[in-house]
């Protein structure tokens, strides 16, 4: 076995990382209202009960609206920024990119309260739209990180070759660049969607009376009786996230293979 103790340590670390996610479905199928061991037998009733939760469906609808809009907007902004930063030189590039990427390290609560202050200051009512504005701010840096590696892998002379062979900048983008970065775009859409779907603080601060799924879940934690249903809901959400991420990873790798590059690792 390569790696010896490092391998054992890493596997132990993965157990630590996965512990909550492994426990989630266990309790979701556990026939007890108290989330504790020992287990009380198998049931699917928490999943069926989910259907009749009154608050869940509007929250889900809100979340999907927010996540889809966020995914599209942040990917569009991400494509523009990634293309600009990998292909062009322009004055003020470093500070501008720094500002755009700032939410990556800025605590979400700071983003949330500063936006809240502005929105209330200029009298914009809190709504789904204001959540989207906040989420786009937060997911765009991730989109840029993914798309930059897609654009970075592009040999600039591919684009020049297309001009040289008679294409305009627009048709060269469509015929050469877009097909080559498409996997990155799909990956960016999926990641932004997943991040937005799971985001809590910004939605909590900027949503007003409009509740997204995480905000709904957070509110349910106060009622112990509601928790098993939340475990069931969480199981579905985690399964969805893992599915989307696997698809995103598939496209990311295919993108790298396509542009003939070398895989250097994960999303960030």
């Amino acid at each position: 076995m390569k790696g010896g103790i490092f391998r054992i340590y890493t596997i132990a670390y993965l157990v630590f990382l996965y512990a909550p996610i492994i426990l989630l479905p266990i309790f979701a199928f556990n026939n007890a209202t108290v989330i504790a061991f020992p287990l009380q037998g198998f049931t699917t009733k928490w999943f069926t009960q989910m259907w009749s939760e009154p608050g869940l469906w509007p929250a889900l609808q809100n979340s999907l609206t927010v996540a889809i809009s966020t995914a599209i907007l942040s990917t569009v902004l991400g494509v523009l920024a990634a293309r600009a930063s990998t292909r062009y030189r322009f004055p003020g590039k470093a500070p501008v990119m720094g500002l755009i990427m700032l939410p990556l390290v800025l605590p979400e609560i700071i983003v949330a309260v500063s936006l809240l202050v502005v929105l209330l200051g200029i009298g914009v009512p809190l709504s789904i739209l204001t959540i989207i504005l906040g989420h786009v701010l937060m997911t765009t840096p991730f989109a840029i990180a993914i798309l930059s590696s897609a654009f970075q892998g592009l040999d600039r002379s591919l684009e020049e070759a297309a001009y040289d062979l008679g294409e305009t900048p627009v048709s060269a983008f469509r015929l050469v660049i877009l097909p080559l970065v498409m996997p990155g775009i799909i990956s960016s859409l999926l990641i932004s969607f997943t991040l937005s779907l799971d985001e809590f603080i910004i939605a909590f601060f900027l949503g007003g009376t409009h509740v997204t799924l995480p905000v709904y879940i957070f509110s349910q934690f106060r009622f112990p009786a509601a928790v098993p249903v939340i475990m069931a809901l969480g199981t579905l959400l985690v399964a969805l996230s893992v599915l989307l991420l696997t698809i995103a990873e598939y496209y990311r790798r295919r993108g790298i293979a396509k542009s003939g590059g070398k895989d250097t690792g994960g999303f960030i």
Binding site: G78, L80, A81, A84, Y88, K93, V96, L99, L102, V136
Partner: peptide, 21 residues
């Protein structure tokens, strides 16, 4: 070259200026 870069970076930059800075 500069103009192309600025044109592309404008939307995300303006977004970040208005909603972050």
């Amino acid at each position: 070259e500069t103009a192309g870069g600025l044109l592309l970076i404008a939307p995300p930059a303006i977004y970040a200026l208005l909603l972050l800075a």
